[in-house]
């Protein structure tokens, strides 16, 4: 494990903590896309099918359990919690999951490393993760005043992806790490989706003004 990978995992974890903080302390999920959260739950459910069969490390197993538990509990809170669900911007969060899920499924069936159930599901999870942030970005663009926690949440997610790319470059140079085209390209696409957001996020932070995305 290198420093980029560890920092990437930690920013990923921090993004989840920031989101849970918002839900638990403010009892609000305003500005958070349920569609994106449901896609993440789907990502972890399909990627970690190996959680009880292939042991990597205690660290890996614990992190997988954390991401599974938190992603499903966030979805539960947004859909069912008496108070939290009232703050959900249902009318604004209109992105259709199926438009993302279906192409990802077809692509995973066609472009994969091995045509087995587990491998196709794993590949599918990579493709879905690459585009899972889209409903959230659309919602951000529609939100006039983005609160700090929501901005930080998306920023931390983007940072996690950027650090993973540094991790792959580092692994490629230091280990005899395979060139995993599927992982790398979908990871790169995912990171590029944040580029625009990063630009406005850093600008608002530099100028000390509220984050607002142009329509």
């Amino acid at each position: 494990m290198n420093i980029f990978r560890l920092s990437g995992d930690m920013t990923h974890l921090m993004s989840v903590i920031v989101l849970l903080l918002k839900i638990h302390t403010i009892k609000s999920c305003a500005g958070i896309s349920l569609k994106t959260q449901e896609l993440y739950a789907l990502v972890f459910a399909t990627r970690y099918l190996d959680i009880f069969t292939d042991f990597v490390s205690v660290y890996n197993t614990i992190m997988k359990l954390i991401f599974l538990a938190t992603s499903f509990s966030i979805v539960w809170y947004m859909r069912h919690h008496k108070i939290v669900r009232r703050s959900y911007d249902k009318e604004q969060d209109t992105f259709r999951h199926l438009f993302l899920i279906l192409p990802c499924l077809i692509l995973a069936l066609v472009v994969n490393e091995k045509f087995t159930f587990k491998e196709v599901m794993w590949t599918f999870s990579l493709y879905v993760e690459a585009v899972a942030i889209l409903p959230q970005l659309v919602l951000l663009q529609r939100t006039k005043n983005i609160d700090n926690l929501t901005g930080q949440y998306v920023f931390l997610l983007g940072a996690y992806r950027a650090l993973y790319i540094l991790n792959w470059i580092y692994r490629y140079l230091t280990e005899k790490h395979f060139v995993h085209w599927i992982t790398w390209i979908s990871g790169l696409v995912q990171t590029l989706l944040y580029a625009d957001f990063f630009y406005y996020y850093i600008n608002s932070w530099k100028n000390n003004v509220r984050l607002q995305l142009p329509a």
């Binding site: 990597v56 997988k64 993973y164 790490h177 992982t183």
Partner: peptide, 10 residues
């Protein structure tokens, strides 16, 4: 290095 070495990532 095994083909699945990337699966040690999250």
């Amino acid at each position: 290095v095994s083909e699945s070495d990337v699966k040690d990532e999250l």
